[in-house]
Design a protein around this nucleic acid. Structure first.
Lengths: 203, 203
DNA sequence: ACCTGAACACCGTTCAAGT
DNA sequence: ACCTGAACACCGTTCAAGT
């Protein structure tokens, strides 16, 4: 037929991304299918492939926007009286974000690129941007850049691990309610332990 | 036709599980399909459904065996001179295990049961058994059972987070080579920090 | 230029029919 | 009793044909 510009390419793009997000929020990656997206927006499956290379490309786009939203959420965190307190706030903001968007967040870990394909460069850049927010918060207390790098990664991984176990329902060793307390415990004990190490090095 | 007992039900079960494990080790959950399993073992797809309820049931069985193997690996860790050292050894053993079976381990997080279904009771039991190994190692240093529970969960989640980021290739913020150092850093700083807290409570 | 929809090569799962 | 294989209801992706 040729519905010819009932929607512009950009509008179509947003329609597709919107429908995809809804499907993922409802049933995770398993709920996403090209044909179902097409049904929801009233186009044929083929249309998706005019706009996106394939489903992986589409998912990567959604993930990019999600990382941007998290970056914004972390950017909105006001610095606290001490670096330690700021890290606490960042960690809780991350936790809140993942709990508000559990299925969408899980997408980052459920979705895998086919064997050959690498993650795009902009994706890697976004990740580093997020991590640098933690590194910056740690800067006043960890001057050696190696220490800062490592501590930021350990904290990030630790908080990720807690949210992962809490949201997965598969390793339900951690309940959703207990997650914030575990995150606080991790951050405070770990940073306290690091501080002691620092002191030892200083003496 | 009715190949009638060329293999016993148990043999067939093992054939299916073996082929499934190979497929997962090659390409993750995405590489697994009932039809491909059937092809590999020379039976028709329908046969799988005489032995397993469905693919989820089959995957859950594989996951159970994997948890058993990890439990054994952790059980083989000899206690060290101090509780802290023992936890270090457990954490490294966990890390080694996940790095030796990356795709299989990822199965635990890639695979989700359909909306209604809950994880079976034996599954939950196995998880608690694993966690109790960490709790036991912590027992000499953390007497309050609440503290023990929390510390074991934080450590477990933390190590899980590090391996997850290292193996995912999607959040490649952590390289495979750096993982052991991050795990050591997490365990030593966290436990040192907890120790300080304890001291404070004691005074 | 844009979109369709049939076509191809796949899925998971069921179940009547065969041995 | 055990296993098959056709059938059903799905997939992702491509591309000739239509407007």
């Amino acid at each position: 037929m040729g519905r010819r510009s009932v929607h512009t390419a950009d509008e179509l793009r947003e329609l597709i991304l919107g429908a995809s997000t809804e499907l993922i929020e409802a049933n995770g990656l398993a709920g996403l299918s090209a044909r179902e997206i097409a049904r929801r927006i009233g186009y044929s499956p083929g249309t998706l492939y005019n706009i996106f290379e394939n489903l992986d490309d589409l998912v990567l786009t959604i993930e990019g926007r999600l990382l941007d939203r998290l970056d914004q959420a972390l950017g909105d965190v006001p610095p606290a009286s001490s670096p330690t307190q700021t890290v606490h706030r960042l960690a809780q903001a991350y936790l809140r974000f993942t709990h508000e968007n559990p299925k969408l967040w899980n997408l980052l870990f459920e979705h895998h690129l086919p064997p050959g394909r690498e993650v795009p460069a902009w994706y890697q850049t976004k990740l580093e941007g997020l991590l640098s927010r933690v590194e910056n918060a740690l800067a006043p207390v960890l001057t050696r850049s190696d220490d800062k790098r490592r501590a930021a990664r350990v904290l990030w991984a630790g908080v990720h691990g807690i949210t992962s176990l809490a949201t997965t329902d598969k390793l339900s060793i951690v309940s959703t309610e207990s997650a914030p307390a575990l995150v606080d415990d991790l951050v405070s004990a770990y940073l306290k332990g690091l501080g002691e190490k620092q002191d030892q090095l200083a003496t």
